[in-house]
Design a protein around this nucleic acid. Structure first.
Lengths: 202, 202
DNA sequence: AAGGGTTCTGAACATGCGGTCCAATATACA
DNA sequence: TGTATATTGGACCGCATGTTCAGAACCCTT
Protein backbone atom coordinates (compact mmCIF):
# COMPACT_ATOMS: atom_id res chain seq x y z
CA UNK A 1 0.00 0.00 0.00
CA UNK A 2 1.04 3.53 -0.56
CA UNK A 3 3.52 4.92 -2.98
CA UNK A 4 7.03 3.44 -2.75
CA UNK A 5 10.13 5.58 -2.48
CA UNK A 6 11.70 6.84 -5.65
CA UNK A 7 15.19 7.17 -4.18
CA UNK A 8 17.76 4.87 -2.70
CA UNK A 9 18.37 5.83 0.88
CA UNK A 10 22.01 4.90 0.88
CA UNK A 11 22.72 6.90 -2.26
CA UNK A 12 21.12 9.93 -0.70
CA UNK A 13 23.28 9.54 2.37
CA UNK A 14 26.39 9.26 0.26
CA UNK A 15 25.49 12.35 -1.74
CA UNK A 16 24.78 14.25 1.46
CA UNK A 17 28.06 13.10 2.91
CA UNK A 18 29.92 14.49 -0.04
CA UNK A 19 28.40 17.90 0.53
CA UNK A 20 29.01 17.84 4.26
CA UNK A 21 32.59 16.86 3.56
CA UNK A 22 33.12 19.80 1.29
CA UNK A 23 31.41 22.56 3.15
CA UNK A 24 31.03 21.30 6.68
CA UNK A 25 27.85 21.10 8.66
CA UNK A 26 27.15 24.73 9.32
CA UNK A 27 28.41 25.66 5.90
CA UNK A 28 25.90 23.44 4.19
CA UNK A 29 22.35 24.67 3.74
CA UNK A 30 19.40 22.36 3.41
CA UNK A 31 18.97 23.73 -0.09
CA UNK A 32 22.49 22.55 -0.90
CA UNK A 33 21.57 19.12 0.36
CA UNK A 34 18.37 19.18 -1.63
CA UNK A 35 20.26 20.03 -4.79
CA UNK A 36 22.96 17.43 -4.22
CA UNK A 37 20.62 14.60 -3.37
CA UNK A 38 17.95 15.43 -5.92
CA UNK A 39 15.33 15.36 -3.20
CA UNK A 40 13.19 18.30 -2.34
CA UNK A 41 13.43 19.77 1.09
CA UNK A 42 10.04 18.36 1.92
CA UNK A 43 11.17 14.87 1.03
CA UNK A 44 14.34 15.23 3.00
CA UNK A 45 12.44 16.25 6.08
CA UNK A 46 9.89 13.55 5.55
CA UNK A 47 12.47 10.85 5.14
CA UNK A 48 15.18 11.86 7.58
CA UNK A 49 13.88 14.56 9.88
CA UNK A 50 15.75 17.81 10.33
CA UNK A 51 19.27 18.69 9.31
CA UNK A 52 20.83 17.42 12.52
CA UNK A 53 19.11 14.08 12.19
CA UNK A 54 20.18 13.79 8.59
CA UNK A 55 23.77 14.45 9.53
CA UNK A 56 23.59 11.82 12.18
CA UNK A 57 22.23 9.32 9.66
CA UNK A 58 25.04 10.23 7.28
CA UNK A 59 27.57 9.81 10.04
CA UNK A 60 26.12 6.50 11.10
CA UNK A 61 26.15 5.26 7.52
CA UNK A 62 29.72 6.39 7.12
CA UNK A 63 30.98 5.00 10.39
CA UNK A 64 29.32 1.67 9.71
CA UNK A 65 31.18 1.50 6.41
CA UNK A 66 34.43 2.43 8.08
CA UNK A 67 33.90 -0.19 10.75
CA UNK A 68 33.22 -2.81 8.10
CA UNK A 69 36.35 -1.82 6.21
CA UNK A 70 38.36 -2.09 9.38
CA UNK A 71 37.05 -5.58 9.97
CA UNK A 72 37.73 -6.59 6.37
CA UNK A 73 41.29 -5.43 6.68
CA UNK A 74 41.88 -8.11 9.27
CA UNK A 75 41.38 -10.90 6.74
CA UNK A 76 44.55 -12.25 5.25
CA UNK A 77 47.78 -14.01 6.08
CA UNK A 78 49.88 -12.68 8.91
CA UNK A 79 52.88 -11.95 6.74
CA UNK A 80 50.82 -9.47 4.70
CA UNK A 81 49.46 -7.58 7.67
CA UNK A 82 52.04 -4.83 7.39
CA UNK A 83 51.29 -4.44 3.71
CA UNK A 84 47.63 -4.06 4.48
CA UNK A 85 48.43 -1.36 6.99
CA UNK A 86 50.68 0.32 4.48
CA UNK A 87 47.98 0.26 1.83
CA UNK A 88 45.56 1.78 4.28
CA UNK A 89 47.89 4.66 5.08
CA UNK A 90 48.72 5.49 1.49
CA UNK A 91 46.52 7.92 -0.34
CA UNK A 92 44.08 6.26 -2.70
CA UNK A 93 44.50 7.07 -6.38
CA UNK A 94 40.86 7.75 -7.11
CA UNK A 95 40.74 10.15 -4.19
CA UNK A 96 38.98 11.13 -1.19
CA UNK A 97 36.53 8.93 0.50
CA UNK A 98 38.96 8.65 3.31
CA UNK A 99 37.75 8.12 6.78
CA UNK A 100 38.89 11.32 8.31
CA UNK A 101 36.94 13.56 6.03
CA UNK A 102 33.55 13.30 7.65
CA UNK A 103 34.83 12.43 11.08
CA UNK A 104 37.00 15.49 11.00
CA UNK A 105 33.99 17.68 10.36
CA UNK A 106 31.98 15.81 12.91
CA UNK A 107 34.50 16.20 15.68
CA UNK A 108 35.57 19.69 14.74
CA UNK A 109 32.17 21.22 14.22
CA UNK A 110 29.55 19.25 16.05
CA UNK A 111 31.05 17.09 18.74
CA UNK A 112 31.16 19.95 21.20
CA UNK A 113 27.42 20.53 20.96
CA UNK A 114 26.06 17.15 19.98
CA UNK A 115 26.81 14.30 22.31
CA UNK A 116 25.55 11.62 19.93
CA UNK A 117 27.96 12.76 17.23
CA UNK A 118 30.85 12.73 19.65
CA UNK A 119 29.98 9.27 20.90
CA UNK A 120 29.59 7.77 17.46
CA UNK A 121 32.83 9.26 16.20
CA UNK A 122 34.78 8.05 19.17
CA UNK A 123 33.31 4.57 18.78
CA UNK A 124 34.61 4.33 15.23
CA UNK A 125 37.99 5.56 16.30
CA UNK A 126 38.12 2.83 18.88
CA UNK A 127 37.17 0.27 16.27
CA UNK A 128 40.10 1.54 14.28
CA UNK A 129 42.41 1.34 17.25
CA UNK A 130 41.40 -2.22 17.81
CA UNK A 131 41.72 -3.26 14.18
CA UNK A 132 45.17 -1.73 13.93
CA UNK A 133 46.23 -3.39 17.13
CA UNK A 134 45.17 -6.75 15.72
CA UNK A 135 47.02 -6.09 12.49
CA UNK A 136 50.14 -5.27 14.45
CA UNK A 137 49.72 -8.51 16.33
CA UNK A 138 49.46 -10.35 13.03
CA UNK A 139 52.66 -8.69 11.93
CA UNK A 140 54.24 -9.70 15.18
CA UNK A 141 53.30 -13.32 14.59
CA UNK A 142 54.81 -13.03 11.12
CA UNK A 143 58.02 -11.75 12.65
CA UNK A 144 57.74 -8.34 11.02
CA UNK A 145 57.30 -6.46 14.26
CA UNK A 146 59.05 -7.03 17.56
CA UNK A 147 56.85 -9.41 19.59
CA UNK A 148 57.85 -7.50 22.70
CA UNK A 149 56.47 -4.23 21.33
CA UNK A 150 53.20 -2.87 22.68
CA UNK A 151 50.76 -3.67 19.88
CA UNK A 152 48.15 -1.37 21.33
CA UNK A 153 50.40 1.66 21.27
CA UNK A 154 51.74 0.87 17.82
CA UNK A 155 48.21 0.41 16.56
CA UNK A 156 47.32 3.77 18.04
CA UNK A 157 50.32 5.29 16.37
CA UNK A 158 49.13 4.03 13.01
CA UNK A 159 45.64 5.44 13.49
CA UNK A 160 47.25 8.71 14.48
CA UNK A 161 49.40 8.72 11.38
CA UNK A 162 46.40 7.98 9.24
CA UNK A 163 44.50 10.89 10.66
CA UNK A 164 47.52 13.15 10.27
CA UNK A 165 47.96 12.21 6.64
CA UNK A 166 44.34 12.93 5.99
CA UNK A 167 44.64 16.32 7.67
CA UNK A 168 47.72 17.26 5.69
CA UNK A 169 46.09 16.11 2.48
CA UNK A 170 43.22 18.45 3.18
CA UNK A 171 45.71 21.21 3.86
CA UNK A 172 47.16 20.75 0.39
CA UNK A 173 50.29 18.67 0.92
CA UNK A 174 50.96 16.68 -2.23
CA UNK A 175 50.20 12.99 -2.49
CA UNK A 176 53.73 11.89 -3.25
CA UNK A 177 55.05 13.39 -0.05
CA UNK A 178 52.24 11.88 1.97
CA UNK A 179 52.87 8.45 0.54
CA UNK A 180 56.53 8.66 1.45
CA UNK A 181 55.48 9.57 4.95
CA UNK A 182 53.10 6.63 5.04
CA UNK A 183 55.88 4.30 3.98
CA UNK A 184 58.20 5.71 6.59
CA UNK A 185 55.58 5.19 9.28
CA UNK A 186 55.28 1.51 8.41
CA UNK A 187 59.01 1.08 7.98
CA UNK A 188 59.61 2.59 11.38
CA UNK A 189 57.22 0.18 13.00
CA UNK A 190 58.84 -2.69 11.19
CA UNK A 191 62.19 -1.45 12.32
CA UNK A 192 60.97 -1.46 15.86
CA UNK A 193 60.99 -5.20 15.49
CA UNK A 194 64.74 -5.24 15.08
CA UNK A 195 66.00 -2.94 17.76
CA UNK A 196 63.33 -3.06 20.43
CA UNK A 197 64.64 -0.24 22.59
CA UNK A 198 64.51 3.50 22.25
CA UNK A 199 67.45 5.84 22.48
CA UNK A 200 65.90 7.27 25.58
CA UNK A 201 65.77 4.09 27.55
CA UNK A 202 69.30 3.15 26.52
CA UNK B 1 44.63 62.42 16.26
CA UNK B 2 41.18 61.06 16.54
CA UNK B 3 39.72 58.96 19.27
CA UNK B 4 42.14 56.25 20.37
CA UNK B 5 41.24 52.60 20.32
CA UNK B 6 39.89 51.20 23.52
CA UNK B 7 41.13 47.68 22.83
CA UNK B 8 44.34 45.81 22.20
CA UNK B 9 44.29 44.39 18.72
CA UNK B 10 46.22 41.27 19.57
CA UNK B 11 43.98 40.46 22.53
CA UNK B 12 40.94 40.78 20.33
CA UNK B 13 42.47 38.39 17.82
CA UNK B 14 43.25 35.88 20.53
CA UNK B 15 39.72 36.08 21.91
CA UNK B 16 38.29 35.69 18.44
CA UNK B 17 40.54 32.72 17.81
CA UNK B 18 39.25 30.99 20.87
CA UNK B 19 35.70 31.31 19.59
CA UNK B 20 36.57 30.19 16.10
CA UNK B 21 38.37 27.23 17.59
CA UNK B 22 35.35 26.18 19.55
CA UNK B 23 32.59 26.67 17.07
CA UNK B 24 34.30 26.91 13.70
CA UNK B 25 33.94 29.67 11.18
CA UNK B 26 30.41 29.14 9.99
CA UNK B 27 29.30 28.13 13.43
CA UNK B 28 30.43 31.42 14.92
CA UNK B 29 28.18 34.42 14.57
CA UNK B 30 29.42 37.96 14.58
CA UNK B 31 27.41 38.44 17.75
CA UNK B 32 29.42 35.65 19.34
CA UNK B 33 32.59 37.40 18.33
CA UNK B 34 31.27 40.68 19.62
CA UNK B 35 30.46 39.13 22.97
CA UNK B 36 33.79 37.32 23.23
CA UNK B 37 35.91 40.29 22.29
CA UNK B 38 33.91 42.92 24.12
CA UNK B 39 33.71 44.98 20.97
CA UNK B 40 30.47 46.01 19.39
CA UNK B 41 29.74 44.66 15.98
CA UNK B 42 30.25 48.08 14.47
CA UNK B 43 33.68 48.33 16.02
CA UNK B 44 34.64 44.93 14.71
CA UNK B 45 33.69 45.93 11.23
CA UNK B 46 35.43 49.25 11.55
CA UNK B 47 38.63 47.71 12.83
CA UNK B 48 38.89 44.51 10.85
CA UNK B 49 36.40 44.56 8.01
CA UNK B 50 33.96 41.76 7.54
CA UNK B 51 33.92 38.33 9.12
CA UNK B 52 36.15 36.76 6.49
CA UNK B 53 38.75 39.45 6.87
CA UNK B 54 38.69 39.08 10.64
CA UNK B 55 39.23 35.35 10.35
CA UNK B 56 42.14 35.92 8.06
CA UNK B 57 43.67 38.31 10.56
CA UNK B 58 43.19 35.76 13.31
CA UNK B 59 44.75 33.08 11.17
CA UNK B 60 47.68 35.28 10.26
CA UNK B 61 48.24 36.15 13.90
CA UNK B 62 48.07 32.50 14.84
CA UNK B 63 50.30 31.25 12.06
CA UNK B 64 52.89 33.87 12.83
CA UNK B 65 52.99 32.63 16.41
CA UNK B 66 53.25 29.04 15.27
CA UNK B 67 56.06 29.93 12.91
CA UNK B 68 57.91 31.70 15.70
CA UNK B 69 57.48 28.72 17.99
CA UNK B 70 58.82 26.44 15.30
CA UNK B 71 61.87 28.62 14.93
CA UNK B 72 62.39 28.76 18.69
CA UNK B 73 62.29 24.99 18.88
CA UNK B 74 65.44 24.87 16.81
CA UNK B 75 67.49 26.50 19.56
CA UNK B 76 69.35 24.09 21.75
CA UNK B 77 72.01 21.44 21.76
CA UNK B 78 71.83 18.67 19.20
CA UNK B 79 71.53 15.93 21.76
CA UNK B 80 68.31 17.44 23.08
CA UNK B 81 66.68 17.74 19.68
CA UNK B 82 64.71 14.54 20.06
CA UNK B 83 63.49 15.63 23.47
CA UNK B 84 62.28 18.89 22.00
CA UNK B 85 60.38 16.99 19.34
CA UNK B 86 58.96 14.71 21.98
CA UNK B 87 57.81 17.63 24.06
CA UNK B 88 56.16 19.16 21.04
CA UNK B 89 54.20 16.00 20.31
CA UNK B 90 53.01 15.45 23.84
CA UNK B 91 49.78 17.09 24.90
CA UNK B 92 50.29 20.21 26.97
CA UNK B 93 49.01 20.12 30.53
CA UNK B 94 47.27 23.46 30.53
CA UNK B 95 45.49 22.45 27.36
CA UNK B 96 44.62 23.44 24.01
CA UNK B 97 46.33 26.19 22.20
CA UNK B 98 47.74 23.57 19.91
CA UNK B 99 48.54 24.40 16.38
CA UNK B 100 46.08 22.15 14.71
CA UNK B 101 43.04 23.68 16.28
CA UNK B 102 42.67 26.75 14.16
CA UNK B 103 44.45 25.31 11.17
CA UNK B 104 42.11 22.35 11.26
CA UNK B 105 39.13 24.66 11.09
CA UNK B 106 40.78 26.75 8.45
CA UNK B 107 41.57 23.87 6.15
CA UNK B 108 38.39 21.96 6.84
CA UNK B 109 35.94 24.80 6.53
CA UNK B 110 37.41 27.60 4.51
CA UNK B 111 40.33 26.44 2.43
CA UNK B 112 38.09 25.17 -0.34
CA UNK B 113 36.49 28.55 -0.85
CA UNK B 114 39.14 30.96 0.28
CA UNK B 115 42.44 30.75 -1.51
CA UNK B 116 44.23 33.04 0.91
CA UNK B 117 43.36 30.83 3.85
CA UNK B 118 44.57 27.74 2.04
CA UNK B 119 47.82 29.42 1.09
CA UNK B 120 48.54 30.73 4.56
CA UNK B 121 47.79 27.39 6.19
CA UNK B 122 49.98 25.50 3.80
CA UNK B 123 52.80 27.95 4.36
CA UNK B 124 52.76 27.32 8.08
CA UNK B 125 52.69 23.59 7.52
CA UNK B 126 55.77 23.92 5.36
CA UNK B 127 57.47 25.93 8.05
CA UNK B 128 56.72 23.05 10.37
CA UNK B 129 58.05 20.51 7.92
CA UNK B 130 61.26 22.44 7.65
CA UNK B 131 61.68 22.93 11.36
CA UNK B 132 61.11 19.25 12.04
CA UNK B 133 63.54 18.30 9.32
CA UNK B 134 66.17 20.48 10.96
CA UNK B 135 65.48 18.97 14.34
CA UNK B 136 65.87 15.50 12.90
CA UNK B 137 69.18 16.61 11.41
CA UNK B 138 70.25 17.83 14.81
CA UNK B 139 69.34 14.46 16.25
CA UNK B 140 71.31 12.81 13.48
CA UNK B 141 74.36 14.86 14.36
CA UNK B 142 73.87 13.81 17.97
CA UNK B 143 73.80 10.18 16.90
CA UNK B 144 70.21 9.67 17.99
CA UNK B 145 68.91 9.09 14.50
CA UNK B 146 70.52 7.17 11.66
CA UNK B 147 72.52 9.69 9.60
CA UNK B 148 71.54 7.77 6.50
CA UNK B 149 67.84 8.30 7.15
CA UNK B 150 65.90 10.81 5.10
CA UNK B 151 65.50 13.72 7.49
CA UNK B 152 62.87 15.33 5.31
CA UNK B 153 60.61 12.31 5.38
CA UNK B 154 61.11 11.75 9.09
CA UNK B 155 60.36 15.40 9.73
CA UNK B 156 57.21 15.06 7.69
CA UNK B 157 56.27 12.00 9.67
CA UNK B 158 56.56 13.94 12.88
CA UNK B 159 54.36 16.75 11.62
CA UNK B 160 51.86 14.14 10.50
CA UNK B 161 51.88 12.53 13.91
CA UNK B 162 51.40 15.87 15.56
CA UNK B 163 48.36 16.62 13.46
CA UNK B 164 46.99 13.16 14.06
CA UNK B 165 47.35 13.50 17.81
CA UNK B 166 45.57 16.82 17.71
CA UNK B 167 42.75 15.30 15.68
CA UNK B 168 42.33 12.37 18.04
CA UNK B 169 42.42 14.68 21.01
CA UNK B 170 39.55 16.63 19.53
CA UNK B 171 37.73 13.36 18.95
CA UNK B 172 37.93 12.58 22.64
CA UNK B 173 40.84 10.16 22.96
CA UNK B 174 42.34 10.52 26.40
CA UNK B 175 45.57 12.37 27.00
CA UNK B 176 47.44 9.46 28.53
CA UNK B 177 46.94 7.33 25.44
CA UNK B 178 47.97 10.16 23.18
CA UNK B 179 51.13 10.77 25.11
CA UNK B 180 52.09 7.12 24.85
CA UNK B 181 51.57 7.37 21.13
CA UNK B 182 53.72 10.48 21.00
CA UNK B 183 56.48 8.69 22.85
CA UNK B 184 56.24 5.72 20.53
CA UNK B 185 56.52 7.98 17.51
CA UNK B 186 59.75 9.47 18.78
CA UNK B 187 61.10 6.14 19.93
CA UNK B 188 60.45 4.66 16.50
CA UNK B 189 62.37 7.43 14.83
CA UNK B 190 65.22 6.95 17.22
CA UNK B 191 65.11 3.27 16.49
CA UNK B 192 65.42 3.99 12.83
CA UNK B 193 68.93 5.09 13.68
CA UNK B 194 69.84 1.61 14.81
CA UNK B 195 68.49 -0.60 12.07
CA UNK B 196 68.38 1.61 9.05
CA UNK B 197 66.48 -0.73 6.81
CA UNK B 198 62.84 -1.65 6.62
CA UNK B 199 61.48 -5.16 6.64
CA UNK B 200 60.21 -4.54 3.17
CA UNK B 201 63.51 -3.73 1.59
CA UNK B 202 65.23 -6.58 3.35
C1' DA C 1 38.20 76.79 23.58
C1' DA C 2 37.10 75.38 19.32
C1' DG C 3 37.60 72.42 15.44
C1' DG C 4 38.86 68.32 12.93
C1' DG C 5 39.55 63.69 12.80
C1' DT C 6 38.92 59.05 14.46
C1' DT C 7 36.47 55.62 17.00
C1' DC C 8 32.56 53.74 19.53
C1' DT C 9 27.63 52.66 20.03
C1' DG C 10 23.37 50.61 19.10
C1' DA C 11 19.68 50.39 16.28
C1' DA C 12 18.10 49.29 11.69
C1' DC C 13 18.25 46.77 7.32
C1' DA C 14 18.28 43.20 3.75
C1' DT C 15 19.19 38.62 2.98
C1' DG C 16 19.26 33.84 3.47
C1' DC C 17 18.53 30.35 6.58
C1' DG C 18 16.15 26.20 8.73
C1' DG C 19 11.85 24.47 9.21
C1' DT C 20 6.80 23.69 7.95
C1' DC C 21 2.88 22.92 5.24
C1' DC C 22 -0.12 21.53 1.50
C1' DA C 23 -2.17 20.66 -2.98
C1' DA C 24 -0.96 17.69 -6.65
C1' DT C 25 0.79 13.38 -8.02
C1' DA C 26 2.05 8.60 -8.23
C1' DT C 27 1.61 3.96 -6.67
C1' DA C 28 -0.43 -0.41 -4.52
C1' DC C 29 -4.19 -2.93 -3.35
C1' DA C 30 -9.20 -4.31 -3.60
C1' DT D 1 -11.35 1.22 -11.96
C1' DG D 2 -11.57 3.32 -7.38
C1' DT D 3 -9.73 4.27 -3.01
C1' DA D 4 -6.26 4.78 0.33
C1' DT D 5 -1.70 5.92 1.30
C1' DA D 6 3.04 8.14 0.51
C1' DT D 7 5.81 10.99 -1.94
C1' DT D 8 6.70 15.15 -4.06
C1' DG D 9 8.14 19.95 -4.97
C1' DG D 10 7.37 24.43 -4.20
C1' DA D 11 5.44 28.16 -1.54
C1' DC D 12 5.60 30.09 2.86
C1' DC D 13 7.03 31.86 7.65
C1' DG D 14 9.69 33.47 11.40
C1' DC D 15 14.17 34.17 12.75
C1' DA D 16 19.02 34.97 12.97
C1' DT D 17 22.59 36.43 10.46
C1' DG D 18 26.15 39.66 8.24
C1' DT D 19 26.42 44.32 7.32
C1' DT D 20 25.68 49.30 7.41
C1' DC D 21 24.95 53.90 9.11
C1' DA D 22 24.03 58.15 11.69
C1' DG D 23 25.09 60.17 15.82
C1' DA D 24 27.61 60.45 20.22
C1' DA D 25 32.16 60.22 22.52
C1' DC D 26 36.79 61.15 22.56
C1' DC D 27 41.72 62.87 21.67
C1' DC D 28 44.88 65.98 19.47
C1' DT D 29 46.08 70.25 17.40
C1' DT D 30 45.78 75.16 17.07
Amino acid sequence: MGRPRKFDEHEVLVAARRVFNETGFHGTSVDDLSRATGLSKGSLYGAFGDKDALFQRVLEDYCAGADADAAARLDGPDDEALDRLRAWLRMPEGDIDRLGCLLAKATAELAWENEAVATRSLATFETLFDSCRQLVEQAQRAGHVDPAADAEVLGGLIVTTHRGIEALAKAGVDTKTLNRIADAAIDNIALAARAGRSVRSA
